[in-house]
Amino acid sequence: MAFHNPQRIARLVVDAGANKAVMSVPNTLVLGFLAGAFISLGFLLNIRVVANLPSEWGSFTSLLGGAVFPLGVILVVLAGGELLTGNMLALTMATLARRATLGQLSRNWLLVVVSNFVGALFVAYFFGHIVGLTGTGVFLTETVATAQEKVDHSFTQALISGIGCNWLVCLAIWMAYGADDISGKILAIWFPIMGFVTIGFQNVVANMFVIPAAIFAGHMSWVDYFSNFVPVLIGNAIGGSLFVAFMYGFVYRKEIRLVESHVNKVKSKVVDFKI
């Protein structure tokens, strides 16, 4: 399986972030909805797999759930989607390379967080609540227990957990850019995502599914949800932007500057031709 070295990955991530920065609003919203739904389907699969497993299996249950959850991120990367936690890497790298502005970064993140939320709510309400996939029997018990564990974290705990989560998620996205074929991308995504789920780190988009699913079933409240949303969002932003984008941006700053220089030269030639 062919793969790119980290220097090449840095350039690919910058290019991807620059394209995301200028994506139209309708396209961003549709792809954001899909990404939120895809991550929720991965979480729904997790719940359906682990809910019936015996308690004696202990942490092996978490491993099995973590093994199937990556479906969501695989769908986002291969089928296409705008995922907030992944864009915390790409848009930040593009901004560091001066291929995007802070305004474009903020615009993208805002559109994507809203559309991810709508996509997650869609799956939680229609598949989870209406169909009953998270609202009955052991599946309800697992959904509520998972959601309760997340909202029981203090602000600091949720924030730090969010850092760990998106550090791994953005490393998965980073490595996926390094693979040229589908099998390589799936392997690159699977291990880090499996790791963050098995460990129990908090992901803001995944929580958009599981906590509302518990709320639709009559447990917890929207106050509980938003009390969790804020620290996890901040933690995910730090994990993706600082621990991956800024650090790799610093290490491979020469490669990123080459990309910036090349783009400026191309723009200059276009202007000269028009004149």
Rank of each mutant, 00 (worst) to 15 (best):
V123N: 07
G81P: 04
L133T: 00
R99P: 00
L105V: 07
A51P: 01
N19C: 05
Q148W: 05
G42D: 02
M23I: 03
L83Q: 10
L64S: 01
A147T: 03
G80E: 03
Q148H: 13
L121E: 10
M88Y: 10
L110V: 12
N52E: 13
V77P: 12
V138M: 06
A67M: 14
V68M: 03
G119F: 07
S62I: 07
A21V: 09
L29N: 03
T136L: 03
A67F: 15
P54D: 04
A37S: 13
G135L: 03
R99S: 02
I47G: 06
L75P: 09
P26S: 01
V77S: 04
T136R: 15
A158K: 01
F60C: 06
T156M: 15
E56V: 12
A37D: 03
V118I: 15
A90Y: 15
N52P: 06
F60K: 13
E142N: 02
L63R: 04
L34E: 01
W57N: 13
G36Q: 09
G42F: 00
R98V: 05
S106D: 02
N116M: 07
G137P: 12
L102Y: 13
T92Q: 13
F43G: 15
N27H: 02
F117L: 08
A90L: 11
Q148E: 13
G128T: 00
A145W: 01
L102Q: 13
R99K: 14
T61Q: 13
G80S: 06
V131R: 14
A147S: 11
K20V: 01
F122E: 08
G80A: 08
L91H: 03
V151E: 04
G81T: 00
T141E: 11
I160D: 09
N52H: 11
A37V: 07
A90D: 09
Y125E: 05
V25F: 04
G66D: 07
D152I: 00
W57C: 08
G132P: 08
S62Q: 15
A97I: 09
L45I: 06
P54W: 00
L133N: 06
N87D: 15
L53Q: 05
W109Y: 04
V151S: 09
F122T: 12
M88T: 15
L78K: 06
L31H: 09
G80Y: 05
S55R: 10
